[in-house]
Amino acid sequence: MKKLINAPEAVLSDALAGIAAAHPSLRVDAEARIITRAGGPSAGKVALVSGGGSGHEPLHGGFVGTGMLHAACPGEVFTSPVPDQVVAAARAVDGGAGVLLVVKNYTGDVLNFEMAAELAGDEGIEVATVLVDDDVAVQDSTWTAGRRGTGATVFVEKIAGALAEQGASLAEVAEVGRRVNAASRSFAVALSPCTTPAAGKPGFELADDEMEVGVGIHGEPGRSREKLEPASAIVATALDAIFADQPLAAGDEAIVMVNGLGGTPLIELYIAYAEVAKYFAERDVRIVRNLVGDYVTSLEMAGVMLTVCKADEQLLSLWDAPVNTPALRWGL
């Protein structure tokens, strides 16, 4: 295992120290393990709190700031945070208008955030939750854990965060968050696995001519293993799955993210984006906004995740609203 770390058990605390030192706009409570805006709560505004296992940076800490999250709760690598963290975060950022929890749909995240929501409610904090479950690589059904929450998390946090910044109510902010999730789909392909510091070896092994199709962001194997294909075919596989689940018609508009999983060179993400642009152009669906880069990662995994959000006027104007976080910044 090759990692730029001091010790597997120190990864989270060392990274938090680095985040604290690097970003004066953030406040890191190393004890409570929460990252909040340095400015404190915004009186009268809904505060967004998200979190999840570490190893997905810049998610979530990199999205704390004006127009997006108020707090992030990082768990250990690939381990959802404990309820105490979430409650501490809700307490720290509640500006009196309630707290929206943005939760990626994994059993661990769901259970820990549920417990936290109950505890925060007991403390008199008004809490609502948006569950993100956009990964179409996973078959959805009431009998399973359901779809994973992946790339759409960025869209939900950006757009709901913008509405919160405008002073909307908790119900409105939650509602738009759910709308974004409902409009979004993701699909990812890995060219190499990743290794958690604690495990010391990769979650799967791939031959030099193989790829894992339909992977999540926790180093687990995907839905199937296939022969490595050109970027055009990989993009088509992902977009076919996305369009099959959420058809976009000629004339529709979309926000698209080509997201690197941590070990993919940016030049390859641009190559993928070129294929995405072609695919959309052929179907006459307009990509009105895009992100190309590493936003929701899986440690050093090589691969790409495509996330498509069907846009409308409200979502688009909230997308364009100012945001000022370490990882996403415009209009400010």
Partner: peptide, 12 residues
């Protein structure tokens, strides 16, 4: 356990 484990195992 709930305060220290996280993940699915902690709450369960």
């Amino acid at each position: 356990l709930i305060s220290s484990v996280g993940g699915a195992a902690g709450p369960l």
